[in-house]
Simulated scan of single mutants.
Amino acid sequence: MKKAPLYSRSRQRAGAPMPTTDTAAAARPSTATPSPTTSEPAAPAPLAQRPSRWGAFVARHRMLVASCAAVALLLAGGVAGRALIAPPIQLTQKDIDAAVRHSLEKEPLPSAYAKAHAAVRPSVVRVVGLDDENEEPPKPGDDPRQHTRSTGTGVVIVDNGTILTNLHVVVGSKRIKVTFADGHESDASMVGAQPENDLAVLRAKSIPDDLVAATMRGTGDLMPGDEVIAIGFPFGIGPSTSAGVISGLKRSFRAPEGERLTNLIQFDAAANPGNSGGPLITMDGAVVGIVTAILNPGEQGTFIGIGFAVPIENAAAAVGLPPF
């Protein structure tokens, strides 16, 4: 049986010495047919590498993998951003109190008395009763003795120029002069009276364009100790504001040569001649009474800490307004 011819895998280098005849003969069988070509057969191709399981998964699910990667990047960005942002400071009550104190020191708030004054001041008027139609009212700053009889205070309760004051301020006067908060002056006439409460209702003949009526409230919830202010023209000086508290309710008082007044509000805000007819005001800026008298056993007739006001319910009845 013939053997398959064998070929060397190594290529002979050019210029190498040819083998001797004997050696060539020994290496080549005598019966073998010479190779038709002298070129060496090509080396077998290397085996292809098998793809990994992860690579196969990625290849099959490209969109899913891309989406997961995008979500992971977003989450990582959020975590990094949160790490860069400082956590909010937890404020304590002490911090809040300190901030409020600092704000108040920088811009102090107006007092409750100032707010009450501002609410009613546009409605307060100076009232002067004159004995002669040609007489001129005393000017502010004149001798205080000129004001003890003729000067009082009033408060606008209807924006058509209706004013409440004390009857004793204007009774017997031949001319009544009122001066509004903006300086506007006008003659006025008495259109109503309630002697049992020492009240008079005036109507101004001309009024400012922006006249404001005061807010009124009932006295049913007043209690001793409640803070109040009184606004008026004591001795013609004003408008002047004084502060105090409600001292008592349902008091009675008889003025010299006057009727006995009942159901009065007693207060200790300073009041003097010229305050008569002015408003008694609570801290919410509402009128609860009309200042009508002060108690002084001496002859001076000045304030010693006891003042009286007619409740606004009585005053409203004098005008014909419904009770509160």
Rank of each mutant, 00 (worst) to 15 (best):
R50Y: 08
G78N: 14
A48Q: 06
K106F: 08
A114G: 09
A80T: 11
H117R: 15
W54I: 15
G77Q: 11
P88V: 09
Q90T: 14
K106Y: 06
L47S: 12
Q93A: 14
K106E: 10
A118S: 02
Q90H: 07
P44R: 01
L91R: 09
M63Q: 15
A99K: 05
R82E: 13
R50W: 10
V58F: 01
A70H: 01
R60D: 14
I96Q: 03
G77Y: 00
G77L: 13
V100H: 01
P51Y: 10
Q93L: 11
M63I: 15
A72P: 01
V100C: 00
A59C: 02
F57S: 09
R101V: 12
P46Y: 01
G81L: 15
R62S: 11
R82T: 14
T92V: 04
Q93M: 05
A80L: 13
P44G: 05
A48D: 03
V79S: 11
H102Q: 14
I89F: 01
K115P: 00
V71T: 10
L74A: 14
E107T: 15
D95L: 02
V65C: 11
A86Q: 06
V120K: 05
Q49I: 12
G81P: 02
P110N: 12
A80E: 07
V58K: 09
A43R: 03
A99N: 06
G55F: 11
I89Q: 11
L64H: 06
S103N: 06
A70C: 08
L84D: 03
V65N: 00
A83W: 00
R101Y: 08
R50T: 13
A98T: 07
S103W: 08
L84A: 14
